[in-house]
Design a protein around this nucleic acid. Structure first.
Length: 659
RNA sequence: GCUGCUGUAGCUCAGAGGUAGAGCACUCCCUUGGUAAGGGAGAGGUCGAGAGUUCAAUUCUCUCCAGCAGCACCA
């Protein structure tokens, strides 16, 4: 028998017979390691203890101490144990796939009856039984025909389909957990008893398409989470509770920021509090863009289909547009006007984006190369008919306003404009509390327009620009728009979620379609490039992100109600009003609370309402012309002379760009 | 859009084939209280919309609308 050489992480190598398994290697090192081993890495591949190693390799034996590998195995084995439990309870259920996810796993099933939330408890109990049984895990490599024959016999059509997808040179691995069998690439633990029976939880049932194909019947997905131990599971469940507490839909209601209702699905009714945040943010962006070299414009929302046909949206994007038919024969008539006259019906669409309108502004009057780069910005109200299932609070809506701008420029200005934008964006994100962000660089997709030389040039310009501002990026080959490459900018929020907000896209296509031109230095007509860019994305979504980022405790300059001045005794009411007036004169958003309630009640209510500063005044403060200051989240109070607190809150209320 | 679930007072939720209840919020009264809910009284609902079954529907059935979770989508 031939020998192979296995190299350990410490650099030492040892000879073993070819076909040795990691289990045998671990055993050879020490009995205790043999017992503790759960899997191995062989040349960087996560390797089942039972798989033979046939050639020289680097090897590392994993135990439960290796968190990444342990969690992968635990979650993967849970997927199998759950599928086994499901088939034990409902034998006619067909299994499909059950991969590991970020915090657990899911398994998709085909079963005519829907799983109910009550079923989950039953499945969990069954899973615990299986774990207690400590059934051994066994694996074999089968040839294709045998595996297919097996699944024909057991009636698992999805598994046959999976086998068809396995490349010829890849092994077809069969796994057994006890007597329950599954096709699986592995690796797995050695017996079901290695699973932490108290560290998993089934999280819900939902629909999912087989391989994401909407044409195929929908499967039922059961999702679970699993961790190394009970403590980690509890920590995760606590995290979910925390995340639910900062849900912008809930805080939006509690803080009286906005509401939505079924007559206008996917559109926001902003209340005074929410609109204050919105306008603060918009005022901020307006100031930033003005000094950033942008000219602000505003364009129509209801536009004839002719423009959308010319831009290409009517062809490619019509299903996402709100189409508005207007019977123009009614022009000048009263409401009960004649029946619709088809010939005089004009078809419009609400703009789903601003770019075509911006080209119209550019196209007015002859443009010279001296006008470029021309940066046109608009807080553009757009409407998109998003699929109903996609709507989510104010994060994914049908009516929204973008902080949009289009830069018209020459080819050799692209690089500078890109670098300039990244700097601009960094400054905005810093001001808004997101000093770190990630850049993803999406390059030419398979289906695209334009020449290779043009793509080469433009992609090069973007790459140079990122390097010029000294930032890293993640390459996403093939993810660009059909007309050009793009940069997307991602923020990470306080609880680790990632949001794409900013974007920068190069577009030579739309100027072509809408016939935008400028006159160059030698007097010839030239086609400008168009750069689409946004920082926040949409105000609606960005405010949703801000709400969740801060759990509703906005930074002072953005807080809708910055200060509440509360009287302790009604004799202080006049003084309360005087304090409020002084604060308002200093540009601070202050409200009086002179209700017939105890100070405890007022403090509680405004704390729950996330007002950053409560100023309480009673006899003492009236006498001394002071206020007692209580900051949100602090139990301690301090006394401050009126003029001092007005000055300090005034400076605190100053937006970051004006400091 | 698809699968499943949900829709009862402003909010959170209970309830039943014979047209409804709690807590908080709201209004009024008492109370002037020093930092996270003082006490009392009162008002408030076409039970998401439409159709069907029934002597009777808010309750059962169907359709639609909206929301939630996930999938798909995200020029």
């Amino acid at each position: 028998m031939s020998q192979i050489s296995l190299t350990f992480p410490d650099g030492n190598a040892r000879e073993f017979p070819a076909g040795t398994t990691p289990a045998e290697v671990a055993e050879a090192i020490s009995t205790s390691l043999g017992k503790k081993a759960i899997s191995a890495s062989v040349d960087g591949t996560h390797w089942d203890l039972q798989w033979p190693i046939e050639s020289d390799a680097r090897i590392e034996i994993h135990t439960m101490q290796d968190e990444a590998q342990a969690l992968e195995l635990i979650r993967h084995d849970f997927a199998h144990v759950m599928a086994r439990a499901v088939q034990a309870i409902w034998p006619d259920t067909k299994v499909t796939i059950g991969p590991v996810t970020e915090k657990g796993w899911f398994y998709d099933f085909d079963r005519s009856e829907p799983f109910t939330p009550e079923d989950l408890g039953e499945i969990e109990s069954k899973m615990k039984e299986i774990i207690e049984a400590r059934d051994p895990v066994k694996t074999e490599v089968w040839d294709r025909d045998r595996a297919i024959a097996h699944y024909e016999e057991t009636g698992e059509p999805y598994k046959i389909e999976l086998i068809d997808r396995i490349p010829d040179d890849a092994p077809i691995r069969m796994y057994w957990h006890g007597d329950w069998q599954d096709l699986c690439r592995g690796p797995h633990l050695q017996h079901t008893g290695q699973l932490p029976a108290d560290a998993f939880k089934l999280m819900g049932v939902s629909g999912a398409y087989w391989f994401g194909d909407t044409k195929r019947p929908m499967l039922q997905r059961i999702q679970g989470v699993a961790f190394k131990d009970r403590k980690a599971l509890k920590a995760h469940l606590t995290f979910l509770e925390e995340a639910a507490k900062r849900d912008h839909r809930r805080l939006g209601r509690e803080m009286d920021l906005f509401h939505m209702q079924e007559e206008a699905p996917g559109q926001v009714f902003w209340h005074p509090n929410g609109w204050t945040v919105y306008t603060q943010l918009q005022d901020y962006m307006r100031r930033k863009q003005r000094i950033g070299g942008y000219r602000e414009i505003n364009t129509p929302q209801v536009v004839d289909r002719k423009l959308w046909e010319a831009s290409g949206h009517w062809d490619k994007y019509q299903h996402h547009m709100f189409v508005v038919e207007v019977d123009e024969s009614r022009d000048g008539e009263t409401d009960d006007a004649s029946a619709k006259n088809k010939e005089q019906t004009r078809i419009n669409a609400l703009k789903p984006m601003n770019c075509p309108c911006h080209v119209q502004v550019f196209n007015q009057g002859l443009k010279s190369y001296r006008d470029l780069p021309l940066r046109l910005a608009e807080f553009g109200s757009c409407a998109r008919f998003e699929p109903s299932g996609a709507l989510h609070g104010i994060m994914r809506v049908r009516g929204f306003t973008q902080d949009d701008a289009h830069i018209f420029c020459t080819e050799d200005q692209i690089q500078d404009e890109c670098a300039r934008f990244i700097d601009f964006l960094a400054s905005v994100y810093r001001d808004l509390g997101f000093p770190d962000f990630e850049i993803r660089f999406a390059t030419r997709p398979e289906k695209r327009v334009g020449t290779e030389e043009s793509w080469d040039y433009v992609e090069g310009a973007l790459e140079n620009a990122i390097n010029a501002v000294g930032r890293d990026y993640v390459l996403e080959p093939g993810d660009g728009a059909f007309y050009g490459p793009k940069l997307d900018f991602y923020l990470t929020d306080a609880i680790g979620r990632v949001w794409q907000c900013g974007t920068f896209q190069v577009d030579p296509n739309l100027p072509e379609r809408l016939d935008a031109t400028y006159i160059d230095a030698s007097g010839d007509k030239k086609r400008p490039f168009m750069l689409h860019r946004a920082c926040l994305g949409s105000f609606e979504r960005f405010i949703g992100i801000l709400i969740e980022e801060h759990s509703g405790r906005f930074p002072f300059w953005l807080a809708p109600r910055q200060v509440v001045v509360a009287s302790i005794v009604s004799e202080a009411d006049d003084y309360v009003r005087e304090v409020v007036a002084a604060l308002e004169a200093a540009g601070v958003r202050a409200e009086a609370d002179t209700r017939n309630e105890k100070i405890n009640y007022k403090v509680r209510e405004h704390s729950v309402g996330k007002v950053p500063v409560i100023l309480a005044v009673g006899h003492r403060e009236v006498e001394e012309r002071t206020v007692t200051v209580r900051r949100l989240g602090e139990k301690q109070t301090s006394v401050s002379p009126l003029y001092e607190i007005v000055t300090s809150l005034h400076s605190e209320a100053t937006p970051p760009d004006l400091r």
